[in-house]
């Protein structure tokens, strides 16, 4: 039985409390995230997904509904404790780099939480090894690539040994290589620990890595399910401003050309196999 780590019940949040004509950024959202899961929250820009991130770690509080973290409603009293258990990586690699060098930045959260010096040195080292940035201990941020900066941000987040890692569009400003570096790092972390990962994204590849996908549209939950279940919706997702995995797009295009395919496939291998069995192996 998996324990719940975060759950939202009927959460509504608006930036314009006075003005009822403005539609709320988040409207009666409910979902539960369990320990050890990787959940992707996807939606086009402006669908409210970043507001959701801020609600989950108490940067914002909802007008109605409750946010529960580790079973307890999030409030001003347990806020700091909650944050120490939830590492967060933001979109802009530059704007979250506090330290003058890589190691100073990783140590920042540790310093804030009063970790003793000797332990701090160990944890900084260990965290940097985990994200493979240990050769860059003394580098200054402007000498690092975007992907490297985001890996440092991850190291800074995991140095506190949190149980949740929240990625708020952490890959959206990176080049393909940087994106790959960051996703590889997260995959690696998941393989080594039972870290719960919540990634807020419009990147398809990132969503495909998740165990579960929540689709947002105009501040509401549009759909929820495994990547397979979600992407089977095809055209609906495109209408929401999202994209489909390559193999699925290809399947749809082939079908439009009159090629017979059993299903819209998620992976290229499945599609190749399908083509093989239905057309050549008769």
């Amino acid at each position: 039985m998996k324990r719940e780590v975060i759950s939202l019940q009927e959460v509504t949040f608006t930036y314009a409390e006075e003005d009822t004509s403005v539609r709320p950024a988040i409207q009666s959202m409910s979902y539960t995230i369990n320990e050890g899961e990787w959940v992707a929250i996807v939606g086009h820009n402006g669908s409210g997904k970043s507001t959701l991130a801020r609600l989950m770690n108490g940067l914002l509080f909802p007008q109605t509904g409750t946010v529960r973290v580790f079973g307890e409603p999030l409030n001003e009293h347990n806020l700091w404790d909650t944050r120490s258990k939830m590492g967060m990586v933001f979109q802009n690699p530059d704007n979250q780099f506090v330290g003058a060098t890589v190691q100073d930045d990783v140590a920042f959260a540790l310093e804030n939480n009063g970790i003793p010096f000797e332990e701090m040195v160990e944890r900084v080292q260990a965290s940097l090894v985990k994200v493979k940035m240990n050769d860059f201990m003394n580098s200054e941020p402007h000498h690092l690539s975007g992907g490297q900066k985001q890996r440092v941000a991850i190291a800074g987040a995991i140095a506190l040994q949190p149980r949740i890692l929240l990625l708020d569009e952490a890959t959206s400003m990176l080049d393909p290589q940087g994106r790959e570096e960051v996703l590889q790092t997260v995959r690696q972390l998941r393989a080594e620990t039972d870290l719960t990962v919540i990634s807020i994204t419009h990147d398809l590849e990132e969503a495909l890595l998740a165990d579960r996908v929540i689709v947002m549209n105009q501040g509401e939950k549009y759909a929820e399910g495994s990547p397979q279940e979600i992407f089977e919706r095809g055209q609906e997702l495109i209408d929401l401003g999202l994209d489909l995995p390559f193999a699925m797009n290809m399947s749809r295009l082939l079908r439009a050309q009159g090629v017979q395919i059993v299903a819209d496939h998620m992976s290229e291998e499945e599609l190749v196999n399908d083509l093989w069995t239905s057309h050549f192996n008769k």
Partner: peptide, 24 residues
């Protein structure tokens, strides 16, 4: 897989779908 080459390099998914359909 097919052990056969398509007549042209398909720069877009659309041309790939067309070429494949023709071949099949």
């Amino acid at each position: 897989m097919m052990n056969e080459k398509l007549p042209t390099l398909c720069l877009t998914e659309e041309t790939l779908a067309e070429e494949l359909a023709r071949l099949l």
